[in-house]
Amino acid sequence: MLVLARRLNQSIMIGDDVEIVIVDIKGDQVKLGIKAPRTVSIQRSEILQEIQEENRNAVNTNINPRALDKLGDIFKKKGSSPKK
């Protein structure tokens, strides 16, 4: 991994169209400004990791389809009779 030291308001370029600016530094938090083409997808990495992990959890579901249909029934009851 490349490590660069930067001060407030300094920036780095990634390729020729992505620029990351140090906008603010407070204690252990750094605010970054990112200038990039609209086609570049920017995420906090932990969100992406969480979704990947949740997809894996979802696939490990071993419910049988009949039990799932039963669960669906609870749903219908809920939907069709809002209040008794």
Partner: peptide, 19 residues
């Protein structure tokens, strides 16, 4: 949205609204 159903208690099923 994708549903995760825990084997231990299907009533605790969750949906992934973030993805």
């Amino acid at each position: 949205v994708i549903v995760t159903i825990p084997d231990t208690d299907p009533n605790l099923m969750t949906a992934n609204l973030q993805g």
